[in-house]
Design a protein around this nucleic acid. Structure first.
Lengths: 142, 142
DNA sequence: ACGCACTAGATGCGATTGCATAGAAATGGA
DNA sequence: TCCATTTCTATGCAATCGCATCTAGTGCGT
């Protein structure tokens, strides 16, 4: 109930680190004429899912997105032709999302920009060992 | 330019940890009838600044907020009577923001809820030593 | 088969964000 | 001093988010 000072500090810095790093990445993507980060994440998940595709609710849980935000994000992405929506075979309510060829191309094109941005936002500040420790600790939070 | 795998993992987990923790905190504040987290941060900064107050651009840099978002946040907060806007004495363009009595009261009232939320989102998952290490590593990112 | 609670997903509407730009005052030369 | 540049803050407008709710299917108990 009453967090220790170390916990409060960790929280505060999580907030600030995120507020510093995210715009760095988003700005670089935008500067390269690429869509926002969330689009990349969706494409990556769908690409990993392969031909089997993913249901929106699975994507939602994987990405920790709200239901309505994912619904609209998929709207935008399918309007641009990066993801395909098909009726689910097993569930009459549901859909099955798959990445399109254009989606794969976009993800491939975005990766170098994204990678450079990650390096600028994170890699430039930490040694590899530190990055590993940081990742391990953050993993415990969710 | 090409981040190591450890760096990419750290980035990914930073994103996810933040997406998990932030809604936890925001939801609890809302459930208690309190305003969003950003309001708390503003009140805290202004309270620390004391009677001298802070200029909007100082607050903006301290909080890593965009200029227009801070401008509008201050609009809302001063409309509710939590912060006071006064013309700056030294700079004819600028303002001087101070926290009001009501603002201090709100912050005091919000803290127990916020503290419990931080503990749920962070403290529950980490030992104190881990929290300290995490805080130190995150500090390097900004 | 029926009724009912639950899940999947979409959507109207108001609030907030992001972008671009405006306006007004300070600052730094020539 | 005068002009150009930069800094500080606000704002119109479009895009996105958050909330509440809706529709359609599913699945279970009887």
């Amino acid at each position: 109930m009453a967090p220790s000072e170390a916990v409060v500090h960790a929280w505060t810095r999580l907030e600030r680190a995120h507020r510093a790093a995210l715009p760095t990445v988003e700005d670089r993507l935008k500067a390269a004429g690429l869509p926002p980060l969330a689009w990349y994440d969706v494409l990556l998940e769908l690409e990993r899912a392969g031909a089997a595709g993913l249901r929106p609710f699975e994507l939602q849980k994987a990405m920790l997105f709200t239901q309505y935000n994912l619904s609209r994000l998929v709207d935008r992405m399918s309007a641009k032709g990066y993801v395909a929506r098909a009726a689910s075979a097993e569930d009459g309510r549901g859909q099955l999302l798959t990445i399109t060829r254009a989606g794969r191309a976009l993800r491939r094109r975005a990766w170098p920009v994204y990678a450079a941005a990650i390096d600028a936002a994170v890699g430039a500040h930490l040694s590899d060992a530190e990055a590993r420790t940081l990742g391990d600790l953050l993993r415990k939070l969710y």
